[in-house]
Amino acid sequence: MANFPKILMMIGAILLIIGFFMQFIGKLPGDIVFKKGNTTVFFPVVTCIVVSIILSIVFSFIGRFK
């Protein structure tokens, strides 16, 4: 129970970071959008790479605290 405040702060920090980056998802250069008529196809290539890098950093920090 002594680690509970640390866990809550870590979860809050992660949610804050995710919320910040959710504003930019789909707007990065390199994301591919095809629009033809009423159909839109979206390939978030660069967004996936950025999210992958961020999650790798976050999980490496979490792994160091255990």
Rank of each mutant, 00 (worst) to 15 (best):
M1P: 02
M1L: 07
A2W: 04
N3K: 13
F4T: 13
P5E: 06
K6C: 02
K6M: 02
K6L: 11
I7K: 13
L8D: 09
M9C: 04
M9F: 05
M10A: 15
I11N: 10
G12C: 06
A13C: 10
A13N: 14
L15T: 02
L15N: 12
L16W: 08
I17G: 02
I17M: 11
G19A: 09
F20N: 12
F21N: 12
M22L: 12
Q23Y: 11
Q23V: 12
Q23I: 12
F24M: 08
I25W: 03
K27W: 07
K27V: 08
L28Y: 05
L28N: 08
P29H: 06
G30H: 08
G30R: 03
I32G: 00
V33R: 10
F34P: 00
F34V: 15
K36E: 03
K36A: 10
N38M: 06
N38S: 13
N38A: 09
T40H: 00
V41L: 11
P44W: 01
P44Y: 02
P44D: 03
P44K: 06
V45K: 09
V45I: 15
V46P: 00
C48A: 15
C48K: 15
I49G: 04
I49V: 14
V50K: 05
V50D: 00
V50L: 09
V50W: 07
V50G: 04
V50S: 06
V51S: 08
S52A: 15
S52C: 14
S52E: 05
S52D: 04
S52T: 14
S52K: 09
I53W: 06
I53L: 11
I54H: 02
I54A: 13
S56D: 03
S56P: 00
I57T: 12
I57P: 03
V58Q: 01
F59N: 13
S60P: 01
F61N: 12
I62S: 02
I62H: 01
R64Y: 03
R64K: 14
R64F: 06
R64N: 08
K66F: 11
